[in-house]
């Protein structure tokens, strides 16, 4: 691997994605889970841009741009939900939120 190839980026992307996924699965603080989701988004972006670079195509970058926009929307709504949650239940521990059970 003396030259930079897309494999580098894909490996980085995979590592970031799986770290993010582990964070979502392990952590209990909703805010941290939220950040881990952002991390996963980012990992996907790395893949897209890596492919775009390798294939001399800008479609991947376009996708990444849309992902950033969607992530912004997701962040707004997600943080709104977290605020509402902490107001209503006074907690950000995800294990305390199980109203869906009933």
């Amino acid at each position: 691997m003396s030259e930079l190839t897309a494999t580098h980026f894909l490996t980085l992307s995979a590592a970031l994605f799986i770290i993010g996924m582990l964070g979502v699965l392990i952590r209990r603080n909703v805010l941290v889970i939220f950040m881990c989701i952002e991390l996963m988004f980012n990992a996907v972006n790395v893949s897209f841009i890596g492919f775009a670079w390798e294939q001399h195509s800008l479609v991947g970058q376009t996708f990444a741009l849309f992902i950033i926009a969607v992530a912004a929307a997701e962040a707004v709504v997600g943080l709104g939900i977290i605020m509402a949650l902490s107001r209503r239940l006074d907690t950000v521990d995800i294990d305390q939120v199980h109203e869906l059970r009933e």
């Binding site: 980085l12 590592a15 970031l16 770290i19 993010g20 582990l22 964070g23 392990i26 952590r27 941290v32 950040m35 881990c36 991390l39």
Partner: peptide, 10 residues
Amino acid sequence: IAVLAAAGVV
């Protein structure tokens, strides 16, 4: 650094 920092997040 990115991966280590990501691990730090978790």
